[in-house]
Design a protein around this nucleic acid. Structure first.
Length: 429
RNA sequence: GUGGCCGUAGUUCAACGGUAGAGCCCCAGAUUGUGAUUCUGGUUGUUGCGGGUUCGAGUCCCGUCGGUCACCCCA
């Protein structure tokens, strides 16, 4: 038994998990680029005050924070948006608007680990700054949809729940409710499906509302509401409106959202939110003390819930499996059948690798049968045998179980030619 | 931060309060130039850690660390 364990809530990435992580991050990156987003990165740690300034209690009591050797208050980043706002406002004149940026990297939250939640997770952030039109939200939602679909998760498997905080602002204004109650009110709405009705009624009563009138307003809010008109037109033109479900209870806890808010959920497994985001037009102004007033919108997607969903969705799992195979397999295994030929085999190993072919071999003398077994275990397509017949070498196709001999001088070209052919072999491996 | 369940070999799990075991994995051999199957042999533990009860604790009690699930909230 090892003396050390991982720190609570952190995880090891053994090759299988690492392949999953890489597959997820590479997919995020490729789809984001397809949408014209450019990658950036921010520090893993920031002054704790950066997060205090931006957020309500939700984030700050989940901060993974500590004092460094110079007694500075430091936090591991719980999210990247505050850093983004700091970076973007600091140099906003250097970039043409709209700024379309994405980021992929670990974030940390100090909370109790549970299903779909650790203290470390990898997050994908996509944000658009400097354009306040509904087209930004539409672009982000479209990106979120295409990212999820790229993993092999189909329209049956997920849904976007969409709302807009402005409909509640209008509602409160109509009811003559003071603006100071807005935050309290939104947190009641956020919990309305989970809390007991009597309690909700009581809390609403304190700010001068009844549950009945709130419910009536919610029931009357659907996709025909004017607040969604432009977004609906945009996403309908893209053929993506079918993924949207209007849900007025989506307000999102983070205090800084101002308009459109949305969350991505799976439809079959009751998992936590896959992704969430919205518009946050005031954040840049807040973070720059009024220096830069720049509209913004964005969303974040985490790797943990997504990974759970990928493993549970058949179409997604096939892609996942082939990504793992591609990450762990080699093209050919060099078998040293006669130790006297090892120097020649090593020379060939180097030549093959220089040509970009993935090659492995056994470090020391080993029975030929064992070497073939290793080649099989490594999912190599070919075994290349160096034996007494050198300078002839034998190339064996491990799937078709056929073999041929070539002079060593033509080995690299021959292997390249064979690898270019489609793999043929037993369907069941 | 609060609560439930769990912690035994690399791994999955057994073991009535009474000598810590099995399958798989791994290594070697049967098989000295060809992959399966099979067979044989072998390595591996301060039972997470620390106290307590007991003649005796993997087992019961307390604490602690970790895992897991839920609350809270969210990626």
């Amino acid at each position: 038994m090892a003396s050390f364990q991982t720190v609570k809530g952190f995880r090891d990435f053994f090759p299988e998990e690492c392949a999953l992580r890489n597959y997820i991050t590479e997919t995020w990156r490729s789809v984001a680029r397809r949408y014209g987003f450019v990658e950036y990165e921010a520090p893993l740690v920031e002054e704790t005050n950066l997060y205090r300034k931006k957020s309500g209690d939700e984030i700050t009591n989940q901060l993974y924070c500590f004092l460094d050797k110079a007694e500075r208050e430091i936090s591991l980043r719980p999210e990247v948006t505050p850093s983004l706002a700091r970076m973007a406002t600091a140099r906003q004149r250097d970039f043409k608007k709209p700024i379309k940026w994405f980021q992929i990297g670990p974030c940390f939250r100090y909370e109790e680990p549970q299903k779909g939640r650790g203290r470390e997770f990898i997050q994908f952030n996509a944000d658009i700054l400097g354009d306040s039109s509904p087209a930004t939200s539409a672009e982000l939602i479209a990106l979120a949809i295409d990212v999820v679909r790229e993993f092999g998760i189909s329209a049956d498997d997920f849904i976007i729940r969409l709302s807009n905080r402005e409909i509640w602002n209008t509602f409160l204004a109509d009811k003559k409710i003071a603006e100071e109650h807005t935050t309290t009110f939104l947190s009641i709405i956020d919990k309305i499906e989970r809390a007991r009705p009597e309690e909700t009624e009581k809390k609403l009563g304190l700010i001068g509302l009844t549950l009945a009138e709130v419910r009536e307003f919610m029931a009357s809010t659907d996709e025909s509401h004017p607040a969604f008109a432009a977004l609906r037109e945009n996403l309908t033109a893209r053929g993506l409106w079918q993924f949207i479900k209007i849900d007025a209870t989506i307000v999102r806890g983070l205090a800084y959202y101002t308009g459109v808010v949305f969350e991505v959920f799976d439809t079959k497994h009751g998992l936590r939110a896959l992704a969430g985001g919205g518009t946050y037009d005031k954040l840049c102004s807040l973070m720059s003390d009024g220096g830069v007033d720049m509209p913004a919108a964005g969303f974040a997607m985490g790797d943990v819930v997504l990974g759970l969903l990928l493993k549970q969705t058949p179409g997604a799992q096939m892609k996942l499996t082939s990504a793992y195979l591609a990450a762990s397999s080699i093209d050919a295994f060099v078998v040293v059948a006669d130790e006297a030929q090892r120097p020649h085999a090593l020379a060939a190993v180097q030549s093959l690798r220089a040509a970009g072919i993935r090659i492995d071999y056994n470090f020391g003398a080993q029975k030929v049968g064992k070497q073939f077994q290793t080649a099989e275990d490594r999912k190599a397509r070919f075994a290349i045998v160096f034996g007494a017949e050198y300078p002839e070498v034998v190339i064996k196709n491990l799937l078709a179980r056929s073999q041929s001999a070539v002079p060593v001088g033509g080995l690299v070209e021959e292997v390249q030619k064979l690898l270019a052919e489609p793999a043929i072999g037993p369907l069941i491996t």
